[in-house]
Write a protein that binds this DNA or RNA. Sequence first.
DNA 1: ACACTAAGTTCAGAAAATGAACAAATCAAC
DNA 2: GTTGATTTGTTCATTTTCTGAACTTAGTGT
Lengths: 377, 377
Amino acid sequence: MLTSSQRQLLRVISEAGPLSRTEMASMLGLSKAAMSGIARDLIDLGVLHETETVYGQGRPSILLDLHPECAFFVGISLLEDPAPMILSDLNGRIIARQAMPLSRDPKVIAEAITEGLPRLLEAHPEAGEKLSGIGVALSGFVDETQANCVQSTLLNWQDVPLARIIRERSGVETFIENDAKAVAVSEKLFGSAREIQNFSVVSLGDGIGCAHFIEGKLYRGNHGGAGEIAHCTIESGGVPCRCGKRGCLDTVASMKAIKEMSRAEGLECTSLSDIEEKASTGNAAAIRILHRAGSALGLAIANLIQMNDPGLILITHVEGSFDGLFGTVLNQAVETNVLPRYAGQTPIRIKRVDGDVWARGAASIAAHNFLIGPNSN
Amino acid sequence: MLTSSQRQLLRVISEAGPLSRTEMASMLGLSKAAMSGIARDLIDLGVLHETETVYGQGRPSILLDLHPECAFFVGISLLEDPAPMILSDLNGRIIARQAMPLSRDPKVIAEAITEGLPRLLEAHPEAGEKLSGIGVALSGFVDETQANCVQSTLLNWQDVPLARIIRERSGVETFIENDAKAVAVSEKLFGSAREIQNFSVVSLGDGIGCAHFIEGKLYRGNHGGAGEIAHCTIESGGVPCRCGKRGCLDTVASMKAIKEMSRAEGLECTSLSDIEEKASTGNAAAIRILHRAGSALGLAIANLIQMNDPGLILITHVEGSFDGLFGTVLNQAVETNVLPRYAGQTPIRIKRVDGDVWARGAASIAAHNFLIGPNSN
DNA sequence: ACACTAAGTTCAGAAAATGAACAAATCAAC
DNA sequence: GTTGATTTGTTCATTTTCTGAACTTAGTGT
């Protein structure tokens, strides 16, 4: 078990990257003397290691960084069938990859994971020894202990203590998380938002997910529902949504909605690129659909900016590119719906992600618990 | 200067009210032994005092609470002319009240405050000795040090280090804050949100303000703009707003907008009650205006709920009552625009406030800095 | 070779928290 | 009433954690 200071240090390093002992001391507000001991202990534990030596005036400083191979994590995405299962190190690098059949029965899932583990680890004995946790990403609401799924429409669950079930069956520490929140954590830990304290991730796929980091911590809200941007009303009195209300962002801007609208217009569409291409050749219906979707998402993001003033909006997407009409309209809509004083002040970063997002996000939940721990302070 | 543990304790008491030493120990995760010393020190300092004795099985426990007269604060609102100036204790009770001329010149403001202080304190010598800070509420953006006004349209300011100017002139520790954020802090410290960790305050007046508390702390966002709900686009392509864009919530639901719309329809309207009364007698224009305003504010609040999932929405207002059409429509709009699963799950509390809100809010900023301190942890 | 600079270590001592024993104040039961 | 159970709060020796100051180390600049 790590001490509170050790945890704080790991957090700082995971945010700010390799640091010298002196820098660490000043960032944590500790003396060099205290830092010296803390660093020694963590090096002895194999969690930190000395990397680069930086020469300046005076004695050169030695940067310390997390040892990427000090711990390994398994991440599983329950969003696809078969469910991908990956093995990752502390840098988020994927070391092994596999799949397992998806099920709605928690016990069957736990069984499949337990069976899959040895195969995932077989080429990496050192990872097996240092396996520090399993993370599971799913579509639904997860409680703040990252142990229970409060509700999942997709899996038809209600108060399922999935983490405990997997932990008991597999013998490995397990945490679960909502899909969008898991992606946000992986961006904070491994990705392009490491040093940013306040940011929101919007994940655009068949559905639209969103999660907020506030003051360096994932914010899940009072019922675990923070970030449910997909069901913000964007078009008053719009088309009915599967959630029961009307005009949700999800009915206009999700890839599922875009595909459905395209099909309704007689356009073949399996990805964003498809319809972007048609729009670029002047197809009126395609242009209309992209316009509607882009401005809806842009408005939602503008509202998010107005509401929370994040330091970064990170849009992750799997399909096609954002260089076309959709992206242009989206950016325009953000600019015109944000206080002019703020226009352009909130960076919006587009990130194309591969099919491993969810599984990597899941692994990052385990990594986060290893590094920072469940206890807040 | 208080230690970190002492600060943590004050925070817990300010949230949870009177507690026994044993309860405090378990809440802070400390031993009874450690708690004993911390409590003794704070009692010696005059910050805590023993209140009620609670009898149960075993030795009765003695509840400790903040001593309301251990420190006094001055709060000034720069939102009105003349600017109200109040003296408050640690419970938010207003002890003395006064006014000073408003100015746009920071030095003149500092001068007026310094001149006003002795008169405010003259009947309360003990408050003068224990005066622990001045808080100033203003309309505009304030940086995270609560010292500089980054920008204020109303006062025509840009990067004004108001807190330093007042502190230097008056010799009293001074902090400034945005109006809506100050109200949120006063509700957290003195009001009806003491024990709630995640909540948002929506203040309805001539303008619409909003501020979020997240994980027990005021969240100001990356540029101090968190909560700028007033300029969320609610009616796409709606009427132009003074901010430069169109269809902002402020153009439809602020009291200023309601009054203007009423006048445009030839209705006399100086307060919400006026127009509510006309609506209740069947005046179509009045009904239309209230409907539009109520559903706009309801939609904005619904979006806020979807986005941040707060544990409470507190709507503060000065004028009239919320029992009429406006309140009904507002509630309806919230319900229909929130995920059905969440409908009714987020309590919305309406609170009628008097003319002292802003000044009391300002004082609470000083009180907050006294209790919890500027340093986060 | 010489000062100069800054990083990191060592070590005695201060500060803060713990655990265990104990004193204090009540209730409950006989 | 007296006794025992029960829980609060204190005391004190000990442990843990951090600090300050002196010191060592490994470079740069002249």
